[in-house]
Design a protein around this nucleic acid. Structure first.
Lengths: 184, 184
DNA sequence: AATCTCGCCGCTTTCGGACGCGACAGTGGA
DNA sequence: TCCACTGTCGCGTCCGAAAGCGGCGAGATT
């Protein structure tokens, strides 16, 4: 699909994430240029001009927006904070599956409330769900790649009790842990 | 209307301002008591008990809510901040009709954005509209009680130009300044 | 002939949209 | 009984659009 004016404006109006980095928009009334995903309200069509790179927009006399920071590498702007946070939370949980949500949030520098919002928006999961997925993923590895007893696996994958391990496993995988191992 | 359980619960669910101060609600699950206008989510009906005074609720073992501060005189809680802010803004504009919104907000200790929201929610007006009403009210006084020339009145009521005075007066009063004077 | 009014017009301000992130209370699940 | 999760707000940031502002004059009024 060609990056012509119409397609760019449509992507801009929709804040379509797929177009982030593929073009930039300069707004005549403010002399500011943005990434297409910028949360600022959509500019009037007749005040937009589109550029393939930040450099070109800059050359045309536009100043970078302070929210989406089109002049920086993606991921460093405040507008990317939520996605960044979700990613970091996932990584931390991977490493340490027995972490209280409150503690996790504190380590990430936000409140638990905000962490939950970020995960909901980015992954559609609550922190607990994310943690359980981590644990079960690890458990499946161990189940298939080792011959460790289930009790051991439950602990190693972050569960504090066998009972929870069995319950969660069944809920996410639809069958008991031993069934998976048996099926090889 | 009697302050029975049903009426209290209805008022609570509606956060009806008219009932503020008339009763207090204790919530069993949290052992906290609130004013009926508290922004916290409405408690389940079967966990509510109602009291006529804060003291009674306290005596029943409830702890005061930190948001609506039922133990304080109304107006001192954070939940009353918006109404307070709106009132103070109106007073300041009355005194000093030639104040930039940004400056006014700063003096009140908030951002202009927040001041606008507060005025919208409390009075249904933008700061400018409020200011213009102040100015026009003062102008009407002078028009009817004195024989000062319009130029003078415009300045005294806070306008910085005759041009704006005429325009705003017409907009709010539906006629030109001289028309009011003529009509006595 | 003063004094008023009001259209035109560039320049500022103001206003609202869309988020970020915090606080606190209430519910429900393990 | 904790802990996790959600509802409901407060208040901040930044941006784009819209409105306000105040000269300049030309009619209109008195």
């Amino acid at each position: 699909m060609a990056l012509d004016f119409d397609n760019c404006y449509r992507a801009l109006a929709a804040r379509d994430r797929n177009f982030d980095g593929r073009f930039f928009v300069g707004v005549k009334s403010t002399r500011i240029y943005c990434r297409p995903i910028c949360p600022a309200r959509t500019p009037r069509r007749d005040r937009c001009s589109f550029y393939a790179t930040a450099t070109e927009a800059e050359a045309a006399g536009f100043v970078p927006c302070l929210r989406c920071r089109p002049e920086l590498a993606p991921g460093n702007a405040s507008v990317d904070a939520k996605a960044q946070l979700a990613k970091r939370a996932a990584v931390m949980l991977e490493k340490n599956a027995g972490l209280r949500i409150e503690t996790l949030a504190a380590r990430l520098g936000v409140t638990a409330r905000h962490l939950r919002r970020a995960l909901r928006d980015e992954l559609g999961l609550t922190p607990t769900q994310l943690r359980q997925r981590s644990r079960i993923a690890k458990a499946k590895q161990l189940l298939q790649k080792t011959k460790l007893p289930l009790t051991r696996i439950a602990y190693d994958s972050g569960f504090a009790s066998l009972r929870r391990f069995n319950a969660v496993f069944r809920q996410l995988e639809g069958r008991a842990p031993s069934a998976l191992r048996k099926a090889r």
